[in-house]
Design a binder for these strands. Structure first.
Lengths: 241, 241
DNA sequence: CGCCTCATTATGTATAGACAAAAGAGGTGA
DNA sequence: TCACCTCTTTTGTCTATACATAATGAGGCG
């Protein structure tokens, strides 16, 4: 693995990352000032600055004017969770995707739905559907869409393109919240997911906003026996060696 | 909210973010070239470049030489999951933390443990413990530590500082994997977590590596009734107004 | 028609220099 | 001792410029 082609600022960034990862630089330790690093690496201050800025935005180091840079305190383990679009997730695994719409209603939200939405919404489209991978039920989806933001949803046909996929392509979002929990399948849910009543479900509640206004609230129930969330994480991409 | 103090490149970045979030710029749309933007905003190309680079690393736009910049295709919803240190998590919520070590063994991994570790490890420290928040069991932890990486673990007392916290402060890591799933509590687990047998558990499997070598593999069982994972996400921080 | 070459264009990296802003360090005076 | 002021260091931002690099498109040639 020759690093000859790597740009200078990435080399510097990787070098410092390695020094932190190896324990040579420990949390709280001071990192040489830009002036010193510029001499050390034989480049301009801007180049050093670019490397250190990247490390800062990754949370690996902290910088303060006059006080200098230091290795950040051990961070909470954090990981980036990619919540795939269901249709893409299923077809990507080589299985046939199909969804069945159980109910569809355009109405004002009831009390429970208003609580889920978290803010006053005049009119929603409420959907209940089951996603299938090949013949096997994959997940049950319960979705509320704010018609003030996505009026087109009333005329959309969600049998081909499920609402999650449709929304992703239709509406940009600015904020999202995920709640992941576990639950026991009720009799009705177990029947729909072709699982034993009383077995475990993985539940994901997702809410999405556009500039402070709620776009959609969705709850997905997965049979625990057939689904888990996997996530890999390397801070700052790849380390050298 | 006056933006007067905002540096130029952040202003530009936010402006383009807003244009994308509002739908004015849709996925696939071309973004003016740096040369055009530099005239538009009346600043140097470097400043424009800094703004666009930030947007690129956030995945909001894509850039190709000669071809220019364009709004990225709708991304999979992704969220940053902070896996808090258990002790910090509990004490932060104002409850008293305590942990009880059920078993502790220094030995070679058995077949199942070797599979969990995913690579040959000569000697491990295997721990089983229960975390309490006030008097209530919070989670059961089952941890394997690679003694080749953390030999000091054998002499550490984990009754005050639990192994997760201890490792976080002791060992830098370069890669992590999380698997989140749901399960039903076995009789033994239910007893330890003071929950009903047959109730749901949220399970987190975490593995951590340092430069390709496994450091630790840990499984945490939470009672579903008392625990869920919450995560908020705004791509690129905050949007303006 | 296909392929090669070359010029063009936009981004990517790097530099030197400049000023602004934050914050620690030290001194002064009450 | 403490409040306040100034000095200095270090980071943060910005500019103008330069050259490298990737990709596209046009033109020419067989």
């Amino acid at each position: 693995m020759d690093d000859i082609a790597l740009p200078r600022y990435l080399e510097i960034r990787r070098d410092i990352q390695n020094r932190i990862a190896s324990g040579e630089l420990r949390p709280g330790d001071a990192i040489p000032s830009e002036h010193e690093l510029k001499e050390l690496y034989g480049c301009s201050r801007m180049t050093v600055s670019k490397a250190l800025s990247a490390l800062t935005s990754e949370g690996l180091i902290q910088r303060r004017r006059r006080a200098g840079s230091q290795v950040a305190m051990p961070r909470n383990a954090q990981t980036v969770l990619k919540i795939h679009d269901l249709k893409a997730e299923i077809t990507a695994s080589g299985r046939a995707y199909r969804c069945e719409i159980l109910s569809r209603a355009k109405r004002a939200p009831d009390a429970a739905e208003a609580a889920r939405l978290g803010q006053p919404v005049a009119e929603i489209l409420a959907l209940e559907l089951v996603h299938y991978a090949d013949a096997l039920p994959y997940a049950v989806e319960n979705r509320l869409m704010n018609l003030a933001i996505v009026p087109d949803a009333v005329s959309a046909d969600f049998s081909e393109t499920p609402p999650g996929t449709w929304l992703l392509n239709e509406v940009p979002w600015t904020d999202a919240e995920h709640i992941i929990r576990a639950d026991i399948a009720s009799a009705a849910l177990a029947r729909r997911l072709a699982m034993a009543k009383g077995a475990a479900c993985l539940v994901i509640d997702r809410r999405t906003w556009q500039g402070g206004v709620i776009v959609t609230a969705v709850t997905l129930h997965y049979p625990a026996a057939r689904h888990q969330i996997v996530s890999h994480f390397s801070p700052g991409g790849s380390f050298g060696a």
